[in-house]
Nucleic acid binder design. Structure first.
Length: 321
DNA sequence: AACGCGACCTGCGAGC
DNA sequence: TGCTCGCAGGTCGCGT
């Protein structure tokens, strides 16, 4: 389940394989994977073929590749072509972006294949594989942003952002993330803390797993009302989210040089380091260290599950779900 | 305006 | 054995 660290692992892996290469041909094997491209398959392909990938950029869980048209533009003869569209990718639940040699058989859930201009020692296909089709690809405009560019760890940040990512807030790993802005907006909400953490418009990159882990680390309950949250508590949960994601990023970072830009989600991190998510019925490690027997519980919440320790994350009296 | 829920998907495991 | 059902989850669109 790719959340921010997994998407960043993909971005770092991908950029070295695709930057500067031209898309020669495109196969759309399942149009459902490009359903967010409103103008249809032919338009999608027409936008990509002949375009050159200039970078791989991320904000939150959105990933995009700014594209330059190889035809020279009269209005921009000095500085080289400036990208005004991008190939956008969201991995959803199960999406993968894989670099493959052309001889490798199609994956079972291969949805879109991009053939790239050949480069010695590099695979010449970028494949989008997705089992559950929550993710997808589409071409979108790059638009000016009023908050200083994508910021989210681009190799060469442009003052432009993919249109569909413009409503997404900066993520906790973004050097330009503003805690003051986050806290100010959080206090105006009248909802529960976890719901707010999952709202990509408030802070991006956090999904169900890291939300549970961040809340556990911060000793806060998911139903805590956002408009009662003290500054120190908000700081604690944000710092916790950042720590958890940096740990996961470090774990995934060991495979950056792999040919496979892997993103099964797992990245080796989940087996070892989860303290709350998926641990229902098992003892809370922090309480156990203090000699207290407490068992992680699982609650239904927002049509998914939330994992908490009833002892060190007590339910608030006037909580909001 | 802000909030909250249903729809979108497939594979897998549990239960009968 | 083979069926059904529940569950996993991110994002969008719509209703309130």
């Amino acid at each position: 389940m790719p959340e921010l660290p997994e998407v960043e692992v993909v971005r770092r892996g991908l950029v070295n394989w695709v930057r500067g290469r031209t898309i020669t041909t495109v196969d759309v094997l399942d149009p459902r994977s490009i359903r967010r491209h409103a103008l249809g398959t032919a338009d999608f392909i027409g936008n990509l073929e002949g375009a050159t990938v200039s970078d791989v950029v991320r904000r939150g869980k959105f990933l995009w590749m700014p594209l330059t048209d190889n035809a020279p533009r009269p209005d921009n003869q000095q500085g080289g072509p400036v990208p005004d569209v991008a190939l956008m990718a969201h991995l959803g639940m199960s999406g993968q972006l894989l670099m493959q040699d052309s001889g490798v058989p199609d994956e079972k859930h291969l949805k879109v294949r991009l053939r790239l201009s050949p480069r010695p020692g590099m695979p010449d296909q970028l494949r989008f594989v997705d089992q559950r089709i929550f993710g997808g690809l589409f071409v979108t405009a790059l638009v000016p942003t009023d908050d200083g560019g994508p910021g989210g760890l681009a190799e060469s940040p442009l003052p432009l952002i993919a249109a569909e990512a413009a409503h997404i807030a900066r993520d906790p790993l973004d050097p330009s993330f503003s805690f003051d802005l986050f806290y100010q907006r959080l206090r105006k909400r009248r909802t529960g803390l976890k719901r707010a953490l999952l709202d990509q418009g408030l802070v991006s990159g956090i999904g169900n797993i890291y939300a549970d882990e961040a809340l556990w680390r911060a000793r806060l309950h998911f139903a805590r009302a956002t408009d009662t949250l003290r500054r120190g508590e908000a700081q604690r949960v944000l710092d916790s989210a950042r720590e958890v994601m940096l740990d996961a990023l470090a774990a995934g970072g060991t495979s950056f040089d792999s040919l496979y830009v892997n993103v099964n989600g797992a990245s080796g991190y989940f087996d070892r380091s989860l303290n709350a998510y998926g641990r229902q019925g098992e003892p809370c490690r922090r309480c156990a260290e203090a000699g207290i027997h407490a068992v992680i519980r699982r609650d239904q919440f927002m049509n998914r599950s939330s994992h908490t320790c009833p002892v060190c994350q007590p339910r608030p009296r006037n909580g909001r779900w």
